[in-house]
């Protein structure tokens, strides 16, 4: 059995269930308690679980993650929240130099199973509050980077993250919290933290994306289907470890690949996917791998300018046409 839930409620369910299942699980972050969470994911949790387990913190991102690391070593299961991914930059030292290193550097003697929940997105928030940094984390061995697009994955992967023994950067997206989708019943619905999913089958072009980009890909695929172009849409779900095999298998069928990412194109996740795919499947490619990404500027505030920066469905459609040589092959969004 399954029910329809919003992405936000799927996350809330995962957190609640895990907090009831395991007393060692606790939440810590800025304004997650009395305020209810900047994106209302933890609304009501303070009342339900009390201040020991739902801890409002000072505005000290480095400390939040660092306390999480120590608490995890000390035997707890911290789920720490960084209000948005932009502020994760202040915690980078704890995430990269500490969290990601502890298991390996100390020769497997102990782990630091911290889940760092954070969110990216945009919405006229200007340059410092509208960034996409999944590649910063996906670069680092030792971290798992999860980026669910649909409610089912939001729930299953968050539960998997909390139950697992590795550090996890769990990235949500501010513009999809209200999206709805089927979520299997039962507290034992837990997903492993790996593996992409082919969510729409097609023979002509493969489109790979994650988070909001997945919805753009799906929208483009539906529109193109009306004129007989069948896109295969892959939702990555997890960026590290990266499931290249699933993409390669699809490309072997479609021979064309479009990557949709909201971050800047240069040095991004798309670059990594393109490089890995050509290493394994260059003979299968009938067109260059194309990337739809953000224009490389700091995000402007004005509505019209912001819209120019980020990927949208039309840009994805254009890229698919370019991959099919239905239009000139010019780089998309540079």
């Amino acid at each position: 059995m399954a029910r329809e839930l919003t992405y936000r409620d799927a996350l809330r369910e995962a957190l609640r269930e895990e907090m009831y299942r395991d007393e060692r699980v606790f939440l810590m972050g800025e304004d997650i308690g009395a305020y209810g969470g900047s994106y209302a994911v933890t609304r009501g949790f303070l009342q339900e679980f009390g201040p020991e387990r739902v801890r409002d913190t000072p505005i000290a991102e480095l400390g939040i993650v660092g306390l999480g690391v120590g608490a995890a070593i000390g035997g707890l299961r911290p789920v720490v929240e960084l209000m948005t991914i932009n502020f994760a930059l202040l915690a980078m030292d704890q995430i990269v130099n500490h969290l990601a290193k502890i298991y390996y550097m100390f020769n497997g003697q102990f782990t630091a199973p911290v889940v760092v929940r954070t969110v990216e997105g945009f919405g006229q928030l200007a340059a410092t509050h509208s960034q996409f940094f999944e590649n910063y984390f996906a670069y680092v061995p030792g971290l798992r980077v999860v980026a669910p697009a649909v409610p089912k994955d939001a729930k299953g992967l968050l539960k998997g993250a909390i139950r697992g023994n590795d550090p996890v950067i769990f990235i949500e997206h501010s513009l999809i919290y209200r999206n709805r989708g089927e979520v299997p019943d039962g507290e034992d619905f837990v997903l492993p933290l790996e593996g992409a999913e082919v969510r729409r089958e097609g023979r002509d072009v493969t489109i790979v994306s994650w988070l909001r980009g997945y919805y753009l890909a799906l929208g483009a695929a539906e529109e193109l289907a009306r004129e007989g172009i069948e896109c295969e849409v892959i939702d990555l779900r997890v960026l590290r470890p990266l499931d290249i095999e699933t993409i390669v298998r699809s490309v072997q069928k479609t021979n064309r690949l479009v990557i949709v990412e909201e971050g800047w194109k240069s040095f991004g996740v798309g670059a990594e996917i393109a490089a890995s795919v050509q290493e394994r499947a260059i003979d299968y490619l009938d067109a260059p791998i194309l990337r739809v990404a953000s224009v490389e500027v700091p995000m402007p505030y004005a509505r019209n300018l912001e819209r120019l920066v980020v990927p949208n469905k039309d840009k994805v459609i254009e890229a698919v046409r370019a991959a099919l040589y239905q239009r000139a092959l010019v780089p998309v969004a540079r």
Binding site: G63, G66, L67, G70, L76, F110
Partner: peptide, 30 residues
């Protein structure tokens, strides 16, 4: 480091161990 002695490591980023120590204190109290 030696987990059996609860020596959770020497850390090479100046001051990086301090939030970790606070986290260990949090675990103890919790």
């Amino acid at each position: 480091a030696d987990a059996s002695k609860h020596f959770w490591g020497g850390y090479a980023i100046v001051a990086g161990l301090l939030p970790i120590a606070a986290g260990l204190g949090l675990a103890s109290k919790y």
